[in-house]
Structures are given as C-alpha cells and as structure tokens.
Design a protein around this nucleic acid. Sequence first.
DNA 1: TTGTATGCGTTATCAA
DNA 2: TTGATAACGCATACAA
Lengths: 337, 337
Amino acid sequence: MSRVTIQDVAKAARVSATTVSFAFNQPEQLSVATRTRVLSTARRLGYAPHPSARSLSTKRHGSIGLLTPQPLEVVFANPFVSELLQGIGAVCAQHDMTLLLVPPLNGSLESAVGRAPVDGVISLGLNAGDPALETLARFGLPWILIDAEAPSGVATVNVDDFGGAALAARHVLELGHRRIAVIGLGRTSPQRAQLGIGARRLAGYRGAIDAAGVPAPTVDPGGVTFAAGIQAFRNLWRARRKPTAVLAMSDMAALGLMAAARDAGVRIPEDLSVVGFDDLPMAAWAHPGLTTVRQPIAEKGRQAARLLIESLAGKAVHSPKPLRTELILRGSTGRQT
Amino acid sequence: MSRVTIQDVAKAARVSATTVSFAFNQPEQLSVATRTRVLSTARRLGYAPHPSARSLSTKRHGSIGLLTPQPLEVVFANPFVSELLQGIGAVCAQHDMTLLLVPPLNGSLESAVGRAPVDGVISLGLNAGDPALETLARFGLPWILIDAEAPSGVATVNVDDFGGAALAARHVLELGHRRIAVIGLGRTSPQRAQLGIGARRLAGYRGAIDAAGVPAPTVDPGGVTFAAGIQAFRNLWRARRKPTAVLAMSDMAALGLMAAARDAGVRIPEDLSVVGFDDLPMAAWAHPGLTTVRQPIAEKGRQAARLLIESLAGKAVHSPKPLRTELILRGSTGRQT
DNA sequence: TTGTATGCGTTATCAA
DNA sequence: TTGATAACGCATACAA
C-alpha cells in the first residue's frame, strides 16, 4: 500500500529512473514513443513524484508560508485575514505555489519557521527585529512583510495608514464634531505587531484633529473584533464626557460599537457618528452602512505574494509605495447637531 | 548562505551526525555532557533539521492538508470556511501539525493532491467517487470528509442537516406561514460538493412542510454569498405569488436577502420572515437578528482534525454521529399576519 | 536518446 | 553512550 516510486514506473516501462524523471521534467529530451509510454504507465500506476524527495533534490518546495503572529483560531476570527488570503491565494494559484499556514508552534514562531517546508514567507504584522524574522534570515528564506514597520532592505507592503486615518478624522471634523474618540487595534494582541500600523493611524487621527484646533481625542485600546467594539462602547459611554464621533481602527470594532450603541438606544448617526477602517464587505451590509476608510486588503495580499515570488526568482524587490486608502461615505456618519 | 546542515553541527561539536540527530530526537540516549554541547552548538549555528530531508527519512510530514474544492479566493469569501479553519487549526496546534491549503491546481484537485507534502487530508464538500479522493486512496493517504455523502468505510463529519432544516420549516409553519420559499446552496458551485448537504436540507424542509399539509415550497438555486441572497430576493419578488417566509440554506444568502428586502421596502419580519442556516457570528449582528439553524462549524473542524490525527496514529476511525443542529430564534421571523 | 552514478539532509539499524 | 552505514525518492551532471 506504499507509494508508487519512480523505480516502479521505470521497471514497468522498461526504462531507467532517469527516463521517467525526464518524462516529467524534460519531456523534449525523450523520443515521443518512450515519453508517451512512460507517461501512460505512470498514470496507470498512479505515480506522482514524492514531494519531499523532489524538494530535497531540487532545493525548492513549491510553496510559500504565511506567518501568523497568533494561533489560527485567533487569526481566522478576523475577516481581514480571509480577504488577505484571497489575494495571496490568487497569486499562488497563478504560479503553481501552495500555501502553508505557519502559526506559532508551542508559542514560538521561530521553531515553527524552522520546520516549515517553504521557499519563502509572507509575514503578517511582524516588525523588524522580531526573532522569528531573524530566524528566517538565518535560513536564507526570502520574506515579505505586510503591515509592519519597514526595516531597511526588507520589502514591506503597507497602505497609507496615516493618510487614511487623516481622511477619517477630517471627515468628522468637517461634520462639526469636536468630541472625538479613537478605538485602537487592541493591546493584548502582539504589541509589536500592531505597533506599526496602530501608531501610524493614531498619528493620522491626531494630526488632523490637532490641525483643526480641536481637543485631542480620547483613545480606547479597542481591538479587531466585534466584541472589542462592544466593550469600547461601554468604556466610552461610562465616561463623563461622551464623544459625538468615534474613529475606529478596524471595521469589526466599529460594527461592534454600532451594535452596542443601538442596543443602548444611542442613534447612529444622529447621536453618534462612527468611522471604521478596512472596508470589509460587511461594512456595507450593516445598517446604517459603515462609513470607513477603505484599504485594498486583497491587493495587499496579491502584492506581497507577487513580490515574494519575484524575490524567489532572484530578483531584487523593493517595498512598493504604500497603497492608497480611500474614505467610503455611508450612513454611519452625520453632522454634529 | 546555504542552510546549516547536521554535518556542520556534527563537525563543530566534534561528534557524528548520528549524535546530533539523537540530541534532537532521542536526547535520553546521550550523556548530559554531549547532549548539552551538541544542542548549544546547534543553537549557536542556527541549525534546524531540513524539513524535506526529515520527512523523506521518517516518512512523515507533520502536516495535514485541507482540500478545498475551489480556488482559495473563492473559498475564503465564505466565512464558513474561516470558522472551520479555527476548529481545525486549534487541533492541529495541539498536535504540532501544520496546515497546508490544497486548492485545485490548474483546475485539478488530483494533481494538487499528489504534490502536497501531507500525512493526511481533510476534504471539504467532496463526495465519494470524486477523482481527487480516489487519488488519495492510491497514495494511501488517510482522509476525512466534511459535509459529504458518507461513503461506507470513510469517516465523515456531518451535522444533522435534515433535522435542522425541519426545525426551520416547522418554526415558520407554526408562525402561520403557508407560502414558503427555499434558497439553496447554489448551482454553480461544485455540484457534487453541494449535492449532499443541499439535498438533505431540502428534504428536511419539504418533509416538514408536506407533513403540515402546506403547499410545496418554491426553490431558488441561491448560493452561499451575500450577493446570491440579493439575487434570490429579486427572483422571488419577481414572481406573481410572493412568499411570506424564506428558508435559506446559508446565513450569507439569508443576510443578503434581508438587505435586499429592506432596500425594497419589504419589512422583516412583518412582511417577510427569514430563517438562515449556519449561525455565523454575523447572523447575530444583523438587524433584526437572523433566526437561523445553528450548526457547530468549528466543532466540525475539530472533530475532523481529531479523527484524522487518530487515523494517522493507526487507529480505525468511524463517522461520528451527525452533530446536533439547533434553532436560534432572533428577530427575523414573525407571525404571518 | 537513454542510462549510470552521485548528491540532497536526515533518520534508523546495527555494531562498537 | 556513540559512530558507521544504509536507506528515503528524486533530479541531474555526465557518459554512452
């Protein structure tokens, strides 16, 4: 019941193993007769090259790894990841690459990296200096970063977090809001991971608010989940001085906040304006629709995958220009009355 | 810049390669002195066993594959898959297994299977007789099915689709509805994939409706996306005889239908009752909340992963009893007036 | 056009 | 307690 090997095929087709290998990898080298004979017996026997043997020999795995800073059960709770995977997956398919998920192993990303049969890695939210990335460097694995502080020399795919956040802030400022709250990306999540984009977005919010001569926003730690948004609403509404507008760094938190607000009898946008960040599909499905900063999530995935594959081909790759963000106006924001 | 091998470590530690291997795999065999020396030099050199070499030798890969009937960009558009992955991922982590995504390669799942370095496979929505599954059998790879017609001898994880659908139908019947429409899982998606559960759910709906002496439901092909739900609403509302209750086989379609209904000025539940299937997180977030048949999606993933891993350990595994479904009452259903 | 010989990096067997 | 040696299955110079 053991796997059919190249030798089995060779024997059955009365040729050498080399010939069988040629039939698959360099068909032109073979006469049509033998080639067809070999291939047909291979098919008949159900032969496929053993992936490990193949990669041991070729020094290639034909797969890339997605390094996730948290366990899969946590990571996939965030729809953001699904969308990113759609982008990465599309490019992988184009290049006959498979995708290996690489979450921390016993809490350690480094050891997980060492055991992953991949030609390169896309890392989500890890910043330079992370031990896992140093491990990658030691193994000579090319890698691309998404949503990270760009260390020099490592290609990083980012969006214009600062500009996007500024768009959101200016929007509510123009609507007359003066008491503004910000909901962050969470403090429990890998701090370093969130540090980069969280800090950039916060700076964008603050810059615009400051430029308008409006009091600095209160900042709730928040998170990237619906539940975090609910909690954020509770925190904000417990305060003496309630905001009239909320700028959330994630759509999920914004949606959770909207739901909590509705349950508390707070009308949106009449009593409270809400702006999200991401433009997940469900932002448009909410009622009212969520005004949000769109970032091209799937495109981030595609770019990262493309860069990595180019890098595997030996090309020198550079960080692309931060992708554009865009304010999507829907019903969750309104004029301060 | 090439990878540090076991030989490098052996040389540096003045021992044989075997000893280095022992240090990692059978530490007890070694004297404390040599073990620590070897391990420390290994760490110093940044050594990690080459995954392919290791699996070639051990005949194990330490990973399982998730066979998806469609490209990743399609599959991950469905939140159902994210939740399933949370369950699978949790069990994988417990057993130090990594997860390889195995979508069709050039449209062919069979060839993708042959190239996947995995010890076993979880297949999503593929029914017995599928060529990809036969390929698995040829390679001697253990596999577990999710949401499939259970062929004899292959462990399959299913929920009680029939019973769940019956619950949904009886619910709207009790509310007095007599004009009922059903929204399916889509006809374009891999037909065979959807055939099993789609047919079972349809039978559940029909059985209950028939038992109540109520006219048979109209059936819209539907799908598993928000857009499919919108389309389904249009189809239904175009008809002369509009339903007062809709039974959707997926929450996504139900939510899309609800949104389309609202946009068309159709009130839910006053004008139209809607029941979904799945109980995705966002079913609770919708407004009104979506009454739906809950199925334990993550648990399906966990069970499948557990069964597969047991199977890898040589145990004989059997299809578990279909998991229970449960009707979750929310605001999207009301009495027929 | 096809075959021989060798290496890829590791683990397992057996001997010392 | 350690080491020598033989697989593991394939690809690829090189030879024929």
